[in-house]
Simulated scan of single mutants.
Amino acid sequence: MAVKICIIGAAGRMGKNIAEAVYNNENADAAGAVDRKGSDVLGQNLYETAGCGKGGPVITDDILESAKNADVIIDFTGAEPTYNNLSIYEKAGKPIVIGSTGFSDEQKKAVEKLSEKVPVVLAPNMSLGVNVALELIKEAARLLKGYDIELVETHHNMKKDAPSGTAMAMAEAAAKGAGLNLAENAVYARHGIIGERKPNEIGIQTLRGGDVAGDHTVFFFGNGERIEITHRAHSRKTFAGGAVTAALWLADKPKGMYNMQNVLGLV
């Protein structure tokens, strides 16, 4: 039987891609769709709004009403709107997949508190490739002791948070592999006379422009050589498909906090 999904932020870029991924997955079905109050798409059918087919649930601005017949909720709306909706998600009592990024420490703790009530998948990136890359980065950092670690990430000019959640996950993986504390060694900008690079620095630089879905490269610089681990997302469809995979996996799980490593069986 198909897993019934409620999509939050149905008219957004990710919302439309998730709707299409649900439409094309025989094991999933859309049971609800939500967009912000005053949105032009309220009252329209989800699949028609997404441009992937006819019908689908009517888009509303009422999360509880739209999610009442759903098995799982998917939310990619962004850190602030997701955080503001956490109390509603607790009332809904449904498993939830959260792909929003840019959470503050306080907001992350609030999501963790929600996971004490319902099962939650929280992941900065839902793609299989990125999650495999995280494992490769951690192992490379473990093996390449003494190599300088730098990371560059590029996203479209509409992205609100920086560095990206994926970049921070990669930086964390590198720090863990190298046996370093990221908070103590991360460097987010360099300008002026800064002196020599400190051995344990992990540089994290951000580029924004155009319509780039997401490029991330971690560099390991040694004497006379360098190794690069790169992931390039060609389309948001990759993330949308991963979100639906996570929803199908999460539907029958007990309450708790999960990530894509759990979903994909990488841990």
Rank of each mutant, 00 (worst) to 15 (best):
L266M: 04
M1V: 02
M257W: 10
I73V: 15
A213S: 09
N69M: 05
L64D: 06
E135C: 06
L136K: 15
V244R: 00
T217V: 15
V120A: 06
H191Y: 13
E65I: 00
V132R: 15
R232Q: 11
P119N: 10
G256T: 02
L248R: 04
N25S: 12
K176F: 05
S235G: 02
L266H: 02
A246N: 06
D105I: 06
G12D: 07
Y188R: 10
V58N: 00
F239R: 06
V152N: 03
I88M: 08
I18A: 07
K138Q: 14
K117T: 08
F76P: 13
W249A: 04
L250N: 03
A246I: 02
V22N: 01
I73M: 15
F239Y: 14
D105K: 15
K68F: 03
P95D: 02
V130T: 13
G15F: 12
A30C: 10
M1Y: 03
F220D: 02
A174N: 15
H216I: 14
Y188W: 13
M260R: 02
A178D: 06
A140W: 02
G129M: 10
V120C: 05
G55H: 09
G241A: 01
Q44G: 13
I137G: 11
E184F: 05
V152H: 07
D29C: 07
V118F: 07
K37M: 03
I5D: 07
N157W: 13
A70C: 08
V152E: 13
V41K: 14
G195N: 07
T206P: 00
G210D: 15
A251N: 08
D40Q: 11
I137A: 13
R226N: 13
S39R: 05
S115N: 05
M14T: 00
G265P: 06
G222R: 11
C6D: 12
R232T: 12
I7L: 09
G9A: 02
N25V: 01
M158L: 15
K237V: 05
G224I: 01
F76V: 10
A50K: 02
V118M: 06
D75P: 03
A2S: 12
D71V: 09
G53V: 01
A28E: 04
Q205L: 12
L250R: 04
Q261L: 14
E201V: 01
A240T: 02
A92L: 13
V72N: 08
L144E: 02
I88W: 04
D29G: 04
N181W: 00
S235N: 08
P163G: 04
L46I: 05
A33M: 02
G256L: 10
D215A: 08
L46M: 04
K94S: 12
S39D: 12
F221N: 14
A79C: 08
R232D: 01
E139H: 04
S127R: 03
V121Q: 07
K159W: 12
G256D: 09
P124G: 14
E90Q: 15
I7N: 02
